[in-house]
Design a protein around this nucleic acid. Structure first.
Length: 488
DNA sequence: GTCTTCATAAACACAG
DNA sequence: GCTGTGTTTATGAAGA
């Protein structure tokens, strides 16, 4: 991928060096041998205490955990950077053939509004050229903004960065943005604001950074985001998404289409994804989530197909209820202002998309999602009730002037009406608050479940290196087959 | 054709 | 007042 610059090339100016330092560490730990060792060491991180923050960042409050540099995170980041390196070798015909980029953009989900006129053309457009930032520095990186932001924040030792440093990190890693119009910064801010995966650090408790706040990954979405990300770029073994092989070696025998973030397979994989959530990635499937991404939170694996769009919207929009008695999990001093709740992005965990379901971003559909600030994920009964109500009831008091006249909009309005009613009965908060202020909260999953998820993630990670090898093998094989069409 | 996901633009408010 | 940051809305493209 882009100028994934070697550590030695990284500027050491200002805050940038901090992030770069950890990045270089990751680069240095990418040998196959180390990967092998990681395989053996995977279980360990589960029991490791969190590392202390390093750069003077505010310490976590008692009872909260910090997104420190745990081994698991290192492993995850390792994966991230491997992915980036892998992007540089996008000449792989196999990989290219499945690029979601298709004929345009080079970025997963890089569908624009036609205003791309002001953006440097991506050599990937048309799918003729691989993404190779070295040769084509103006290549648009095949990562969504949610992914970029996530990587930037994860790359920071303190796991929190001001917007400005997020810009810097992105610029450092992807020279494409150096020549791109400043609109991308707007997109970054847009993602930060709308993606559930990202949270502002409470200003009072953070160091003074001048304008703006520090941004971090919402711990509640983080696991899912990571999970989604590690399945993201070019992961060659899509089926592992739902059920990681019990043995890392198992990956080697698997063959499935490579996975891009945003690739059809990726999206189908009910999964996990970033902005998935923007949720986990903007009201994120929940990449980011439990959304990039309600992102990316690993939801019980349900066949996506049986879940309706509205269900997904609800799932993505809803999510969490937080109270004093039920504090946010190990959130690092993130702003907990109940007013801060938006659903843009985080559905991923649910449907595999990362920008949260926010279709909710759309005027009507979004309302539907936002209206459901309760947690369907953890309450199938409630979900069923609501669904039944949707079928039973007819809209009664919905102001006509708020209804769109299109059939689809009427459908949405109907559902919105029912959701509102249901929510009132359930004592839900009003949807009159701004999106981000309505961010719902959800009780943390049980330790058992989290451990299971972690274990699954680690197993999955264990196969990453093997997968990379497999890609290479498949590429060679594919090239060979091209020359020698199968006899069958 | 509809829905979803995502990028992008723009407007606005607010803080430094 | 300027600039950067954060929020929100709108729109469009592409894929499912």
């Amino acid at each position: 991928m882009g100028p994934v610059m070697p550590p030695s090339k990284k500027p050491e100016a200002s805050g940038i060096s901090v992030a770069s330092a950890s990045l270089s560490h990751l680069y240095q730990a990418s040998s196959l041998q180390e990967a092998e060792e990681l395989d053996l060491a995977f279980p360990a991180p589960l029991a490791l205490p969190l590392a202390p923050l390093t750069d003077g960042a505010a310490k976590p409050e008692k009872g909260t955990s910090t997104p420190g540099m745990e081994d698991e995170e290192l492993t995850n980041l390792n994966w991230l950077h491997e992915s980036k390196n892998l992007l540089n070798s996008f000449g792989d015909p196999v990989l290219r053939s499945v690029s979601p980029v298709g004929g345009e953009g080079g970025v997963a989900g890089n569908r624009g509004d036609g205003d791309h006129d002001n953006m440097p053309p991506s050599p990937i457009a048309g799918g003729d050229l691989p993404y190779d930032a070295d040769r084509n520095p103006n290549c648009k990186p095949p990562y969504s903004f949610s992914c970029l932001i996530f990587m930037a924040i994860e790359d920071a030792p303190s796991k929190r960065l001001p917007v400005k440093e997020i810009y810097t990190w992105i610029l450092e890693q992807f020279s494409y943005f150096a020549n791109a119009p400043t609109g991308w910064k707007n997109s970054v801010r847009h993602n930060l604001s709308l993606n559930k995966c990202f949270k502002k650090v409470d200003k009072d408790r953070s160091q003074s950074i001048g304008k703006g706040s520090l941004w971090c990954i919402d711990p509640e979405y983080r696991q899912n985001l990571i999970q989604a990300l590690k399945k993201t770029p070019y992961h060659p073994h899509a089926q592992v998404f739902s059920t990681p092989p019990t043995s890392p070696r198992a990956y080697q025998s698997m063959s499935s289409p490579p996975l891009w973030p945003g690739s059809p397979f990726f999206r189908r994989n009910g999964g996990v994804l970033l902005q998935v959530p923007q949720g986990v990635i903007q009201n994120g499937a929940r990449m980011m989530s439990h959304g990039l991404y309600t992102g990316i939170r690993p939801l019980p694996i349900n066949p996506i197909g049986i879940r309706t769009a509205d269900d997904r919207s609800v799932l993505s929009g809803g999510c969490r209820k937080r109270s004093d008695s039920n504090p946010p999990c190990d959130s690092p001093l993130v702003s907990s202002d109940p007013k801060e709740d938006h659903t843009y992005s985080t559905n991923q965990s649910d449907d595999g998309s990362d920008y949260t379901s926010d279709s909710s971003l759309r005027p009507i559909a979004r309302d539907v999602a936002n209206d459901s600030d309760f947690d369907y994920e953890d309450d199938e009964d409630d979900k069923s009730k609501i669904q039944l109500e949707i079928k039973k009831e007819e809209p009664r008091d919905w102001p006509i002037d708020t209804l769109d006249s299109t059939p689809s909009s009427q459908q949405h309005n109907k559902k919105r009406h029912h959701f509102l009613k249901a929510k009132q009965r359930m004592g839900m908060a009003s949807d009159t608050l701004p999106l981000k202020k309505r961010r719902a909260e959800k009780p943390p999953e049980s330790d058992d479940e989290e451990m299971k998820e972690a274990a699954g993630s680690l197993l999955h990670l264990a196969g990453v290196r093997a997968c990379l090898n497999n890609i290479t093998n498949r590429t060679a094989k594919g090239q060979k087959e091209q020359k020698e069409p199968t006899k069958n």
